[in-house]
Write a protein that binds this DNA or RNA. Structure first.
Lengths: 110, 110
DNA sequence: TTTATTTGACGCAAATATACGTCAAATATT
DNA sequence: AATATTTGACGTATATTTGCGTCAAATAAA
C-alpha cells in the first residue's frame, strides 16, 4: 500500500468495511451461528464443528474477538467463547443503517 | 488452498460470506453510496469521487457488477452504472436474516 | 511427579485482494 | 480524416488473508 490506508476514506466507511470484512468468511459466519445456537462454547467444540484445523479456526476466532463480536472467558485450561451482546447490537444498527442508505428509488438504468 | 473451497461450508454460508466480502472495502461501500445518491452514474464520475486511480475504481466496480449489486448500461463511449434493484433487495433480505439469526439471548459468558 | 489436554503464539507457504500503469478498442470531437 | 475521450482488459507489484504445523505454557488427570 502506497498511501496511508485509513486516511483515504472517512472513518465511518472504514469501520463499516471492517465489520463486513469480519463477516466475509464462511468459517467466521459459522462460528457466530454456532455461538448463537450452542449451549457450550469451548474453543475445541467450535473447532470440531468446522472443516478446518484447530489452528485455523483459532485464528478466525481471534479475528472475531479482535473486532469485538465475541469474547472469551478462561475456565481452567479451557476458554469459553460467546457472542458479545453490545457489539452484536452495534452490528445490527450498522447493518440497518446500511440498508436504509440503499433504500432509494434512484434506479436510473432500468 | 488444499481442499475444494466451495465444499467446505454449505452454500448459504458461502453465498452470504461472498456478499459480505463484496461490502468489505470502503471504496465499494462508497461506490454504492454514490450510486444511491447520484443523479449521474458514469464510470468517470465515480472515479473522480474516490481517492483511487481510475483503474482501481474500475476494478471495484467490476466486483460489484460481478456479484450483481450494480449494473452497467453502455451509452456511446460511456457506461452508466446504477444499483441493481433486485439484488439490493436480496441483500437486504440476507442481512435481515443474518441479523435475526443472531437475535438470541444465549449470552452465556456474561 | 509424570503424562495428557487444551490453548494461543509464532512462523511459513499458498492463495487472494489491492493498487496502478499501459494499451487497444470504441466512440466523439475537430 | 485526424485527434481526443472514455472505457475495460491485461500484466505486475505489493499487501493481506487463509490454512496449517510446531511449540511452549497452563492446567488437569494418572
Amino acid at each position: 500500500m502506497v498511501q496511508a490506508k485509513s486516511d483515504l476514506f472517512n472513518a465511518d466507511l472504514n469501520e463499516r468495511a471492517m465489520l463486513f470484512k469480519a463477516l466475509a468468511h464462511p468459517a467466521r459466519l459459522r462460528i457466530l451461528q454456532f455461538l448463537a445456537e450452542s449451549e457450550s462454547c469451548i474453543t475445541g467444540d467450535i473447532s470440531d464443528e468446522l472443516p478446518l484445523s484447530r489452528t485455523t479456526v483459532n485464528q478466525h476466532i481471534k479475528e472475531l474477538k479482535e473486532i469485538g463480536l465475541i469474547q472469551g472467558q478462561i475456565d481452567g485450561v479451557r476458554t469459553k467463547y460467546c457472542l458479545c451482546k453490545d457489539k452484536v447490537e452495534e452490528l445490527k444498527v450498522a447493518l440497518q443503517e446500511f440498508i436504509d442508505n440503499l433504500d432509494i428509488n434512484n434506479y436510473k438504468c432500468k
